[in-house]
């Protein structure tokens, strides 16, 4: 039986964020009207991606190395993502958020969010080492070589997947993830 046990404080916090989805469902999502709500959802999605994707062991420096979510370019999430990630784990690893700004992508990143305003996206992506999941905005991101792209579909946040790119980077995407994706390309 499903039960909301008090000991699962983390889970109860997760609920807070999932609650945000409800707002998305019932409140029409206008582009630019409430950016923080949209990005709150996307931040939660980023966290969820870690649950449905398997990283190769080589992606980490060692056993104790944290799971790093890196934000390249301008950070659209603000403090929301920090709240979401706080206390979360990816497997056995602690989750941390690194804001890279315009700097180069370090080897330690496992998930790289590429902001929409970044130039030379394709260039940046092509230079990335394997073992890094790339998440960006819009269809162009996949064409530029990204793996998962957020899209707004029928006023809801969804995503497309480039399975080929992900596999090339040594990532294994769960079939469940693929089923909920809007589009999956090889």
């Amino acid at each position: 039986m499903p039960r909301v046990a008090p000991k699962q404080r983390l889970a109860s916090r997760a609920l807070v964020y999932i609650e945000l989805f409800a707002g998305l469902l019932f409140a029409p999502l206008c582009s630019g009207a409430d950016v923080s709500l949209e990005y709150s959802v996307k931040a939660a999605f980023l966290l969820n991606f870690t649950k449905f994707i398997e990283w190769p062991a080589t992606a980490f420096a060692n056993q104790q190395a944290p799971f790093e979510i890196c934000i390249l370019g301008k950070d659209p999430f603000g403090g929301v993502i920090d709240q979401i990630v706080l206390g979360e784990m990816a497997g056995n690893r602690a989750l941390i958020v690194r804001r890279l700004g315009e700097a180069s992508v370090p080897q330690t990143c496992e998930l790289l969010y590429v902001g929409p305003e970044l130039k030379d996206t394709a260039q940046t992506l092509s230079e990335l080492p394997p073992g890094i999941l790339t998440v960006g905005e819009g269809n162009r991101f996949l064409r530029a070589g990204g793996m998962i792209a957020f899209v707004i579909d029928d006023r809801r946040v969804r995503f497309d997947i480039s399975q080929g790119a992900a596999e090339k980077a040594g990532l294994k995407l769960s079939a469940k993830l693929l089923t909920v994706a809007r589009l999956v390309s090889r």
């Binding site: 959802v41 649950k51 449905f52 089923t179 909920v180």
Partner: peptide
């Protein structure tokens, strides 16, 4: 089979 759907709304 419903975990992803629920996770990703």
């Amino acid at each position: 089979n419903s975990t992803a759907a629920l996770a990703f709304n």
